[in-house]
């Protein structure tokens, strides 16, 4: 029987996913902002701020989720 992943492994996968999501979100938000720049005045900036803000949150979340970077996980706890 396969053992479940440890807590540290899960936090690391989540952190990597958030950081990757932050990067991709930043890129997507940039592309969407450029794509819909002519739709309405100020809409591209709003979309870029939303996408950039989401990317920043993802990045912050990755930092918080990565074990030992901000919060140090307790030893011996399962993932």
């Amino acid at each position: 029987m396969r053992q479940p992943p440890s807590r540290t492994a899960v936090l690391k996968v989540t952190a990597y996913g958030l950081w990757g999501g932050a990067v991709c979100s930043a890129v997507v938000s940039l592309l969407v902002s450029l794509r819909f720049q002519s739709l309405a005045p100020g809409l591209d900036q709003k979309l870029f701020l939303v996408g950039g803000g989401m990317a920043l949150l993802y990045a912050i979340g990755g930092c918080l989720a990565y074990p030992g970077l901000v919060f140090k996980p307790k030893e011996g706890q399962p993932g």
């Binding site: 996968v13 989540t14 990757g20 999501g21 991709c24 979100s25 997507v28």
Partner: peptide
Amino acid sequence: IIGAIILAV
């Protein structure tokens, strides 16, 4: 991780 990134996007 790839799935998480796609979900984030």
